[in-house]
Design a binder for these strands. Structure first.
Lengths: 343, 343
DNA sequence: AAGAATTAAGTTACCCGTAACGTAAATCTG
DNA sequence: CAGATTTACGTTACGGGTAACTTAATTCTT
């Protein structure tokens, strides 16, 4: 049974010092291997540290104002979307390897949630913040500007970031996919995605996509599943909705691979042949694509690498190394076999 | 461009107080709505807070020792496995709603990583810890015991937990699946999973599974993909390995649905019909199953609910409400159509 | 109107480490 | 061997809040 208490360390540095018969300062020096003590003293102090199970209170160190914390706030829209889970994994692994910790914030795709989270997390004096997306509330932007710590905006490349931006240009990515599908001969194309209140990368992507399709003489029918996570079932259901409401659609572009997979299953369940009766294109090149019988037409984005790059740039900034303010992580179109090959 | 600095708040409570013409203490009282000040004073102070953009430094509050922090350390093996991503989502959403933050630790399934992470995170004076799994290193256990904060062990139910345990009994879950498959008439059954150095829930599950199968007169052929994440491709590849090495296997049980899906794809790619030529059973009932043409035989575990329950029990313990020390979150066998129906 | 009770403040001390500075003992130097 | 230097410590002060205590001003009571 746990006693209610706020202090983790019953045992403080003073206690270790006292019992070892040295001053607090000497004990502190030993623990930081700072030098300026004899071997005999080191042994005495370390013996007490082990004996008492002393754990330093890093709060005190940071609080004293001479070191920055090893917290990095990381905001992620949601983890139901495998893409973001991978990005987070990349971030946390790299941060962990470099001695830092992620303080997570799931923003549910809303700027208000993000703002609240930023306010709270800043009060814990993080070393820096990694935020998903480039759109933030006005108050959030002010707080971020005043915080005076590194801010890395990921996912959605931003040529004039608050501080550092890593990701891809979603407009271009959407555009490339649109051009590719038009090049495959499709004219009437559907789009199935989710929709949230705020502008985001997916909507930017859709803009680029539409521009390419419409510029190539095609049309785009949109089907947005409101307030759903971009995963399998909304893909299945959204496809049903889309095809129920519009005739003559030859190909569907999805917000991501999970939704595309749901759509693929819908089409096959209705006896449609892919790609002969319906073209399917996804986005993200998720692991599931590695085992599917048909190679899904998609867009490869190095999610894990994106997360790692974000963490690395954060750490570089923290150690005052030069860091570019804007890194394009790139994407690659996967032609796949779920759309008819371009002529 | 960011100036190197450790303090987030250029502006401290003293400054707010000074400029508002009151003492630090009065300003503190206003900010905490503690009472004991006039309306005029409140307005004066709050005006300065807004004007200066003051953000409290919570480190100082916790450090002072009178409040516990709002950090909760959460250790998760990896996020490539959708199951754990869902659990984390459940935890963080609930914690967030209750004003707390998750400090993430990805342990890569190793006790040593977990131990290192525990040491670090404890030094930040968290309010509590949520750990995945019931197996910890000896040093870790000592630190956890001494920490004197709530510890919730999730995933793998533990009848004598360090503090609180939430999850399911994996032995029973494996046993039930084994009994079910034997009841379907299978005798020679394969298992495909990943393997790590340490004991874990998956191995407990496999033990239960083998007991049921062997008790029912069947045999289990194991195929463990070493040091891989339990996801699609290892499922595909592991199936190839398994079937290349053993003859006469009638049905395969997988560590999870993602692996099972990979196996299903392998079988179909080789022209085997499921379930006629090969039975397939997964574990976890992942979202992908909701759109597959065949309903995957699996075991439903309420992942999100598990995470939420863990967070709720943590918060209950923190507010000194009574909490059971061991909660079974339950599982449910999904018969599906990827194995032949029981006779 | 004098004393009691309440309200609205201010003062002091503390939390736990570490920077900066001070000092005594040991070692080195010429 | 005296003085300079180095080593091995100790002492003091500080950071940003808050608990606990004190004080001054206001309001209430009889």
């Amino acid at each position: 049974m746990v006693e209610k208490q706020s202090k983790i360390n019953k045992v403080s540095l003073s206690q270790v010092a006292r019992e070892a018969g040295v001053s607090k300062m000497t004990a502190s020096r030993v623990l930081r291997s700072e030098g300026g003590y004899s071997e005999k003293t080191r042994v005495k102090v370390m013996a007490k540290v082990d004996e008492l199970g002393y754990l330093p209170n890093r709060l005190a160190t940071v609080f004293a104002g001479d070191k920055s914390s090893t917290f990095v706030g990381v905001s992620i829209p949601d983890l139901g979307n495998e893409v973001f889970a991978q990005v987070l994994e990349g971030i946390d692994r790299k941060l962990g390897a470099l001695g830092h910790q992620s303080v997570l914030g799931l923003t549910q795709h809303t700027m208000q949630e993000e703002e609240n989270w930023i306010r709270t997390v800043l009060s814990w004096q993080p070393a820096g913040l990694i935020l998903t997306g480039r759109y933030h509330s006005q108050s959030a932007i002010e707080m971020l500007r005043n915080a005076g710590i590194p801010i890395v905006e990921i996912w959605d490349l931003n040529s004039s970031p608050l501080d550092i931006s890593v990701g891809i240009n979603h407009f271009d990515a959407g555009f490339d996919m649109g051009r590719y599908l038009v090049g495959c001969g499709y004219k009437k194309i559907g789009y199935v995605g989710t929709s949230h209140d705020t502008a985001n990368a997916a909507s930017t992507r859709l803009d680029g996509f539409c521009k390419a399709v419409e510029g190539g003489g095609g049309t785009v029918e949109r089907q947005l599943c409101l307030h759903d996570t971009a995963t399998y079932y909304p893909g299945f259901y959204g496809t049903e909705q889309l095809l129920g409401g519009a005739r003559g659609i030859e190909c569907i572009f999805y917000q991501n691979d999970a939704m595309a997979f749901g759509g693929l299953q819908y089409c096959e369940s209705k006896g449609m042949s892919v790609p002969d009766d319906m073209g399917i294109a996804g986005w993200g090149d998720l692991p599931i694509a590695s085992v599917m019988g048909k190679r899904l037409t998609s867009m490869h984005v190095p999610h894990l690498k994106l997360g790692q790059a974000a963490a690395e740039m954060m750490m570089a900034r923290l150690s005052d190394e030069p860091v570019e303010t804007c890194r394009d992580i790139g994407f690659r179109l996967i032609p796949g076999s779920t759309v008819t090959a371009p002529t």
